[in-house]
Design a binder for these strands. Sequence first.
RNA 1: GGAGAGUUGACCGAGCGGCCGAAGGUGACAGUCUUGAAAACUGUUGAGGCGUAACCCGCCUCCGCGGGUUCGAAUCCCGCACUCUCCGCCA
Length: 423
Amino acid sequence: MIDLALVRSDPERVRESQRRRGDDVGVVDRILAADTRRRAALTEFERARAEQKSLGRAVAQAHGDLKTELLARTKDLARQVKALQADAEAADAEARDLVMSIGNVVEPGVPAGGADDFVVLRTQGTPRDLAAEGVPVRDHLELGEGLKAIDMERGAKVSGARFYFLTGVGAQLELAILNAAMGAATSQGFSPMITPTLVRPETMRGTGFLGSHADEIYYLDKDGLYLTGTSEVALAGYHTDEILDLSDGPLRYAGWSACYRREAGSAGRDTRGIIRVHQFHKVEIFSYTRAEDAATEHERFLAIQEAMLQALELPYRVIDTAAGDLGSSAARKFDCEAWLPSQERWMELTSTSNCTTFQARRLAIRERGEDGTQPVATVNGTIGTTRWIVALLENHQQADGSVYVPPLLRPYLGGVETLTPVL
RNA sequence: GGAGAGUUGACCGAGCGGCCGAAGGUGACAGUCUUGAAAACUGUUGAGGCGUAACCCGCCUCCGCGGGUUCGAAUCCCGCACUCUCCGCCA
C-alpha cells in the first residue's frame, strides 16, 4: 500500500510511477476524489458522534422529566450517528480499496517499460565455448539423468507435470546449495529461519501477492489457507502489527522453505526438466530496515547474491528490471541471470526487490521515531534455489557427461570434485 | 473430533452498562540526590485518524476479530480466530 499522504502532497509523482509501470494513471485522481469524500463523511460522523457522547453524559446525570426529555432526543441522534458512521465507513473502504489497487511507487532510475525493457548493469564471467573445448552440449536434464540425479518420469507418475524427484547426488546437490546459502547468510548476520508454507489470507494479502498474481497461488479451500511461493510471505508476516526497534540496525532473516507455484500462465514454457516447476526449495534473505536505508540494503543484497554466484563460478549478468515488470510490492528489482548453454540464453537465478514501505504499510509494521511511529521498509532476495542445479550442471559439464563441483559445495558432497555419470 | 478456561498497552495485571483509553505494578526515558553508579524519590511514557500543510489545541476510533442489544458497551448477547488444560484419534 502506498502512502495516501504522498498522493495528496505529490500526485504527479504517483502518476509518473503509474505511467512507467504501464498502469492506470486516472486512478490517482479517483483516489484524491475518494479521499475528499472520505474526509467529509468522517468529519460529519465525528461531529454527530461527539454530540451523542456529550448528550449521553448528560443523560447519565439527569433525573425525572429532564431525563425523559433528553432520552427522547438521543434516540433520534443515535439513528443519525449510525447512518453517518455507515457512510463514513463506506467512503473509507472505497478510498482504501483504490489505494490498495495500485503498485508501489517506483524508485528513481528504474527503466520505464515492460519485461523486455530491462537494463543490463554488468556481466560477470564468460560463458564457456563448449564447442571449442570439444564438449558436446547436454542440457541439465540429460546431464541429471546421466548422474541419476533427476527423475522427471516418476515425478509425473506420482504428482503430474512439472513435478520431479531429486535422487542421490541430485538431492545432495540441492541440499548443498541450500546449506551453502544458509551459511553465507548467517555469516552476514542474517538469522536462520524455517518458515510456515501455509499462510492465512490476511498474510498473503498483506505481502501484496493477491493482486494480479493471485492465479499463481495454490489455495486450500477447506482450510482457507494459501501455499506460499516464497518464504518472503512468512518472513514479511512475521512482524505484522508490531513496532520494531531498529536502533541497532536492520532486522535480517534468512528463510528456508519449500515454495509452491501453480505456473498458471506459463503452459508450454520451460516444460523440460526442472527450470519451471510447481514445487522447489529456496533460501531467501529478508530485511526490515529504516526507509532511508532501504536502497543501501538493496545493494547489499545484490552484493551477497553476486558473491554466491561467483563462488559457484557461474557466468551471469545483472539486470535492472523495468517498471512494468515489477511486482506490485517492488519499487526496484535486480535479477541475476546465469548463462544457460543448452538454450544459449540467460536464465534468472536470483531476484532482489526493494519494497520500500509498501508491504510494511499493509502489515502495520513500524518503528518508533523521534515523534511517533513510521513504517519500516522491507527488502528481499534469493540466495539459493533448486533451479541453481540447472545452471551448475550445464555450465560445469565435461565432455564425458561428468560435472565439475565448485569448492563452495564440496564440503556438502563428501568432498568430491566431480560428479560422474552412473552407468 | 469432544469438554472447559482464557485473549486488556512494550510486559504483568485490575476493571461496577454512564469523567474508563482504561487502576496498580514492571520496564523505558527525564529530573532530584551522588565524584560516578546503584538505591530512593518525583515526573513522563499506547496506536490510528479528522479538524489542518505544520505547531498548539480540540475531537473521533481502537480493550483478539466481526456483528447485535442499548440513549450509552472493555463490561451484556451471538459468530469467528487464536492460546492453554483435559479427553479422544493419529504419529
